[in-house]
Design a protein around this nucleic acid. Structure first.
Length: 803
RNA sequence: GCGGAUGUGGCGGAACUGGCAGACGCGCUAGACUUAGGAUCUAGUGUCCAUGACGUGCAGGUUCGAUUCCUGUCAUCCGCACCA
């Protein structure tokens, strides 16, 4: 065995061996473990060292689980539908399928360089008809359950390009391509009723081992709030308007009302005198992009000419329109209490509307308000509810309204239904046929998948429809129900569709008859560990949870939550900013693998910083890890043929090493795992140098512990120690806490909290003895002082408090 | 604006439930071996008016003792953004 660490030869050798003889073979006697990466979108620019980070982490974790005796599933696949491929098609005329296949091949080559234990037999691709057959099947089931429905909805529309835009193409309110101001266009869209699952999606967050931050982001997104819906009669008519409020306690303080400009009753209630003003305002609001609407904080509005009647005190409340009220939250209409809401206060001040205070600070006199009082307090000016605590009044007034049939207590969510159709080519066709007689009819399941046909042009049609609408022979089909001429749905699904359930398919990727078989699903699912970026904290994870709950409800799977444990790795930055092709700061792993080897890069990816935090990439840092690898190599090479019998000291280092590595690994504190290896190795080198040698078991333990991180080197060293079987067939070593104990320990001696000496003591030495020794060692510094207090923290510190 | 996170040497970072701040690594300095060094090895490396003092964004507090707990404050980053 050479004392030089020839990483290239070693890595080539073991990659081949693993291919011939996988280390993670199917074995039903072992418990299962499913460790999943968020599957990538195979972009044209390939992987950089930032991508590696998550993949290395999940692979090290998978290999750790293998060593712990699990049968691990660690699959990989491609989320390959999406905009960039389509835009390439438009620009260069390359079929998205071809572009995507090329990118997948490149990604796969780069991923192979990581040497992860991926089982490529399980590979999936969302653009494969055999896969999207089931994406479509799920849609059909949702349609049958009434969860998929059609609705006219506004989309971002570029009037110059005559095309719909995704939100990310329309940031800042202008078209990403041509710079024109983005407007809205009403289009018929498919919607998924995710709101029907809002409560369950919120409640079940409790049972997940996810970062609190992500759970909170999801909870905020769902945005549950309690309140009341209250009916306000419109004066001199028999109409009424329903408002939602979380503050029924402030009802007596309502002095006006506001409707969203898009509110459906605007036109029927507006008076003739006000009509032209109102219509002008409504039009203005519709042309403003949502970004504009958000950024201009100045309140605007217009009076409709009519009044609402406060159901409790009969006060006449002028009804305004204003864009600070959102059409799709609550009922799109609010009662306004300027005294107790900042926005209402601002609006009332600007429009000269009176302000009536109905809550005052407990124990204080009522005094004129200079700003809205939004805290709790005591009720005033509220008829029978005066002197009640406002918190109590909230409940009491809501109940009163309910009893008198003026309103009802409700729960409201920010979560909205999911716009599920895209006017694009490169997505799964929505498997629906529109028939004049039968309406929307799902494509019969036996005819799935509805394959994406070839088109001549990927250009947007200019009408807002997808390019598919131009393929007459594809669009025109008989109605599956009545046989009359009918038309296919030409919208496609969003990229989310394929990624909302892919984790199920890995368990049974080649099944042609079922999405996943019962047995396979029961065996492998749910996912035990899910690793990916924080950018998916809300949408992807929420959609995947929604899909899983739906599939649970229709009996496809027997669990409600797809991901038991979630780990979000941080990004890798370079020069303080996210690595990206456009910033020109991308570090490619390819050259690093060439120069340092896969194992060194794996190790460095983990060493670079705490895995959950963003880290700065430092090119020279990998040298340190590479040196460490060489040290380990040399250490084993020099001692493998002349191991010494184990000594107390070697045993101590070995147990301590197992303990440190295992506990840090369990906390997914990968950077300290790596430093732990360095510490242990340094100690072993020192010990070996001082003539004490190295015993076989310590060498073996070090190699097994290293295996999840530097698999090639570990295998090679393991073989060099004379073993015939893979190191991954070994068991993760266990430590004995007693054997970690040092015989003597060094403790600090402080006087008044300041370090004054260090003291060697026996590990078991009694407190009294330690204190005596401590006083002796700092004796000269105690002269002329009296000891007021003596503190001994076992094994750590003595502090003498003196005067 | 609201919510969350973070702030420690020249740099990345470590420090378990309060107990010797700066582990580990990068970089740097000096030396050894060398024709050579982007190799390897050895020693050193928080700051300063250096037997000591000061040091974990800043100002206080609790404690024998605070990077860790509490109060206030500043900065940076992330998420949400008129949610009634």
């Amino acid at each position: 065995m050479s004392t030089r660490y020839e990483y290239k030869a070693i890595e080539t050798k073991w990659r081949k061996k693993w291919q011939e003889n996988p280390i993670n073979k199917e074995n039903d006697t072992k418990p299962k473990y499913y460790c999943l990466d968020m599957f990538p979108y195979p972009s044209g620019s390939g992987l950089h060292v930032g991508h590696w980070r998550g993949y290395v982490l999940s692979d090290a974790w998978s290999r750790y689980k293998i060593l712990q005796g699990y049968q691990v599933m660690h699959p990989m696949g491609w989320d390959a539908f999406g905009l960039p491929a389509e835009n390439d098609a438009i620009k260069k005329g390359i079929h998205p399928e071809i572009g995507t296949a090329k990118n997948v091949a490149n990604f796969k080559r780069q991923l192979t360089e990581i040497s992860a234990v991926y089982d490529w037999d399980l590979e999936i691709n969302t653009t494969d008809p055999a896969y999207y057959k089931w994406t479509q099947w799920i849609f059909v089931q949702m349609f049958k359950q009434g969860l998929a429905y059609e609705k006219r909805m506004p989309i971002n529309w570029c009037p110059d390009c005559k095309t719909g835009l995704a939100n990310e193409e329309a940031t800042s309110g202008t078209c990403e391509r041509c710079g024109a101001v983005v407007t809205k266009k009403m289009l018929r869209q498919w919607m998924l009723k995710i709101t029907a699952y809002g409560e369950r999606l919120l409640k079940d967050l409790d049972q997940l081992e996810w970062p609190e931050k992500v759970k909170k982001m999801q909870a905020d997104w769902i945005g549950k709030s309690y309140g009341a819906e209250i009916d306000f009669k419109i004066a001199d008519t028999d109409k009424q308007i329903k408002v939602f409020t979380t503050r029924p306690d402030t009802l007596y303080g309502a002095t006006f009302m506001v409707l969203a400009p898009e509110h459906e009753m605007v036109h029927e209630i507006t008076t003739e005198e006000q009509r032209s003003e109102v219509e002008k305002y409504v039009h203005l609001a519709s042309t403003k992009s949502s970004v504009d609407r958000m950024t201009s904080k100045e309140k605007t509005g217009v009076f409709t000419g009519v009044y609402g009647i406060n159901p409790l005190n009969g006060a006449k409340l002028p009804i305004y329109l204003s864009d600070y009220v959102l059409a799709d939250y609550g009922t799109g209409a609010i009662m306004c209490v300027p005294a107790h809401d900042e926005r209402d206060f601002e609006f009332a001040t600007k429009f000269g509307i009176s302000i009536v205070q109905v809550i005052k600070k407990t124990g204080e006199e009522l005094k004129p308000l200079t700003e809205a009082y939004t805290e709790e307090g005591v009720m005033v000016n509220s008829g029978p509810f005066d002197d009640m605590k406002s918190t109590e009044a909230k409940e009491t007034i809501a109940s009163y309204l309910q009893e008198h049939d003026i309103g009802q207590k409700t729960v409201n969510y920010k979560l909205r239904d999911w716009v599920f159709s895209r006017q694009r080519y490169w997505g799964e066709p929505i498997p629906i046929i529109h028939c004049d007689t039968c309406g929307a009819v799902p494509v019969p399941e036996a005819e799935l998948p509805v394959k994406l046909p070839d088109v001549e042009s990927y250009q947007p049609t200019g009408t807002g429809e997808s390019p598919l609408a131009d393929i007459k022979e594809w669009v025109h089909v008989p109605c599956p129900t009545c046989g009359k001429p009918a038309k296919r749905e030409t919208n496609t699904m969003p990229q989310w569709a394929g990624s909302s359930w892919y984790f199920l398919r890995y368990a049974d990727p080649h099944n042609q008859d079922e999405l996943v078989s019962k047995e396979k699903a029961e065996k492998w699912l749910p996912v035990d560990m899910y690793v990916g970026g924080i950018e998916h904290a809300v949408l992807h994870l929420l959609y995947a949870r929604f899909y899983t709950k739906f599939l649970y409800d229709i009996g496809v799977v027997n669990f409600e939550e797809p991901f038991v444990r979630l780990f979000n790795q941080g990004m890798i930055n370079k020069n303080g900013v996210k690595m990206s092709k456009s910033k020109g700061n991308v570090v490619s792993p390819d050259q690093l693998v060439e120069r340092y080897g896969c194992d060194s890069l794996r190790m460095y990816e983990l060493f670079v910083g705490p895995p959950e935090i963003d880290s700065e990439w430092d090119d020279s840092g990998i040298d340190g890890v590479f040196r460490f690898m060489n040290k380990v190599w040399k250490l084993i090479a020099e001692h493998k043929d002349r191991p010494v019998p184990v000594t107390r000291e070697l045993e101590r280092i070995r147990h301590k090493m197992i303990y440190e590595i295992t506990s840090r690994l369990n906390n997914v504190s990968m950077n300290t795992v790596v430093s732990g290896f360095m510490e242990s190795t340094n100690r072993l080198i020192d010990l070996a140098r001082s003539g004490n040698g190295l015993d076989k078991e310590t060498m073996e333990t070090l190699i097994i512990l290293l295996a999840p991180f530097t698999p090639h080197m570990a295998e090679e060293l393991w073989e060099a120690l004379g073993h015939k079987e893979s190191v991954f067939l070994q068991k993760w070593p266990e430590y004995d806490a007693d054997k970690m104990q040092e015989d003597t320990i060094e403790i600090a001696v402080q006087i008044n909290g300041k370090l004054r000496a260090n003291l060697q003591i026996g590990a078991q030495e009694a407190q009294e003895e330690v204190l005596n020794k401590a006083k002796q060692i700092v004796g000269d510094k105690l002269e002329g002082k009296t000891i007021v207090k003596e503190i001994y923290v076992a094994g750590r510190i003595v502090n003498l408090v003196v005067k």
